[in-house]
């Protein structure tokens, strides 16, 4: 199977799952900013998704995307460490034009994953998971309305520590994306001499837009505003 046994094949998996996750982030960030304009509109999106079959399937596919991306990242890093050999250089210097994030994608990925667990605990475990477990019986089971997304946003971000943690997380994600977006295109062969600088520029702009959309919410809360 060339997607496992060849280096380019393994990179194709990283690239395709990466692009898929970027598309998810795009949807997620756009959905999020709605809450800044109207908590009701946001909640209607949350209930439109909820634990409906399409949202559950979507979550499953998304989880698969994450798992593949992470497993391949670990496998590739291990192979690359082996290829580098046991002896290290005594002196290493940074090359001009080589971004810091490109050499630290695994570290950035681990940071992003760590915060992702916290994030799932904050939101997913209280929303889709509760709905899956109890359906309409959430009230009897003693839970907050799982479709009241705005409530959970308020609850988490009212604590400035969590707002700051989320900002740190998003900055790490921004570094990860600035390399990830253009690199994923390069890995599947979508690049040439004319386009390489354009692709890198588009990658930076796109990552920045996504992260700004995300970061707007914790910043909004840090400035003292609330969504409810």
């Amino acid at each position: 199977m060339w997607l496992i046994h060849s280096s380019v094949g393994r990179k194709v998996i990283m690239s395709v799952t990466g692009i898929f996750l970027v598309l998810f982030l795009t949807f997620h960030s756009v959905m999020n900013v709605i809450v800044l304009f109207s908590a009701e509109a946001y909640n209607s999106v949350a209930s439109a998704l909820g634990a409906n079959w399409y949202a559950v399937i979507g979550t499953g596919v998304l989880a698969l995307g994450f798992v593949l991306h992470i497993l391949y990242a670990l496998y590739l890093s291990w192979l690359n460490l082996k290829a580098r050999g046991k002896d290290r250089y005594a002196v290493t210097k940074r090359q001009e034009g080589v971004s810091w994030s490109s050499k630290n994608m695994l570290v950035l990925g681990i940071i992003v994953f760590g915060f992702l667990v916290l994030h799932l605990f904050h939101f997913w475990a209280k929303m889709q998971l509760v709905e899956l477990q109890y359906g309409h019986g959430w009230e009897a089971a003693g839970f907050q309305n799982p479709q009241d997304g705005a409530y959970f946003i308020n609850a988490s971000f009212s604590n400035p520590i969590f707002s700051i943690i989320y900002i740190v997380w998003l900055v790490a994600l921004w570094f990860h994306l600035t390399h990830g977006v253009w690199s994923s295109l390069h890995s599947i062969g979508v690049n040439n001499k004319t386009w390489i600088n354009r692709v890198k520029c588009i990658s930076n702009v796109y990552s920045t837009i996504i992260i700004l959309l995300f970061i707007a919410i914790p910043v909004y809360f840090l400035l003292g505003f609330r969504v409810l």
Binding site: S7, R10, K11, L76, L79, N80, K82, A83, R84, Q95, E96, G97, V98, S99, S102, K103, M105, H179, W182, S183, H186, S187
Partner: peptide, 13 residues
């Protein structure tokens, strides 16, 4: 036993 490219661009530099 060569590694997998991660597009850092160090080679080009």
């Amino acid at each position: 036993g060569f590694g997998n490219c991660t597009n850092t661009g160090a080679c080009e530099a």
